[in-house]
């Protein structure tokens, strides 16, 4: 396959960036999208140019490091996958592909396609935990039975990989899907219920502080989420928040 790549290049956070065009040949359908970028970078290095910097690590769709806005969509045209699992068979010979970083005020660009997602970190640090010490003197794991449906719902909320696609997909750059997934996981479990009020208030406050936008229920986040995190989580967080605020 021969492709034309239009890639956002930006020297550092302070510099102004812009799109540059790179023709690339020899792309195979079995390559992953990131392997395609590896090929491009190899060519750039051989030519004595600086390679395109992008975030990636596990390359199996679980660490949540990779990002990229591909032809306007977070993680590209395929559904239920991260960019590292996106394969070139989703594209055609002769295609032009535009590759940009995730865009959001709360995700400033660090370099080229790499953004700073530490705002997500701070939301979780604000209250995304259950306050138990790791002493080992906890009660037996089976002492509180949890209905399977409830445990499964908590698990599905917990499958969020924190990649930020929900924010990049949202016209308001809202982090509601992310934050609500974290709030939901713990709110659904008896262990997390005890400090549920404190948690939701603290996490939402931090989310607002970071400059994420508001949720207007377009549902774009759910569609682009590589893990299929459900909008139900947002509804749950709103309920949790309301209950906690009127107390």
């Amino acid at each position: 396959m021969n492709l034309t790549l239009k890639i956002w290049r930006q020297k550092d956070a302070a510099s102004k960036g812009g799109i540059q065009t790179y023709p690339l040949g020899g792309v195979e359908p079995d390559m992953s999208f990131l392997e395609m970028l590896d090929v491009l970078n190899q060519e750039l290095i051989d030519k004595g140019e600086e390679p395109v910097v992008f975030d990636h690590d596990c390359r199996e769709g679980i660490c949540g490091t990779c990002s990229l806005q591909i032809n306007g969509e977070p993680h590209g045209p395929d559904r239920g996958v991260t960019t590292c699992q996106l394969h070139m068979r989703m594209f055609k010979d002769g295609d032009t592909i535009t590759i940009e970083p995730f865009r959001a005020k709360a995700f400033p660009v660090i370099k080229d396609l790499v953004v700073d997602r530490s705002s997500f970190e701070r939301i979780q640090q604000a209250g995304g935990y259950i306050s138990v010490n790791t002493s080992g003197n906890t009660q037996d794991a089976n002492s509180i039975p949890i209905p399977k449906d409830q445990a499964d719902a908590a698990f599905y909320a917990a499958t969020c990989i924190g990649c930020g696609a929900c924010v990049a997909a949202c016209k308001n750059a809202s982090a509601m899907l992310f934050t609500s997934a974290k709030v939901s996981q713990m709110a659904l479990l008896p262990q997390g219920e005890i400090e549920a009020d404190r948690r939701v208030l603290a996490m939402v406050e931090q989310m607002d502080k970071e400059g994420f936008g508001n949720c207007t229920n377009t549902g774009a986040c759910e569609i682009e989420c590589p893990k299929g995190i459900s909008l139900e989580n947002i509804a749950r967080m709103n309920r949790e928040y309301l209950r906690a605020s009127v107390k």
């Binding site: 138990v132 906890t138 009660q139 794991a141 039975p145 949890i146 445990a151 996981q185 713990m186 997390g192």
Partner: peptide, 13 residues
């Protein structure tokens, strides 16, 4: 396992 359950790890049930 006790510790992880107390922390909210959603193991299969």
């Amino acid at each position: 396992i006790d510790q992880c359950v107390a922390q909210g790890v959603p193991f299969a049930r």
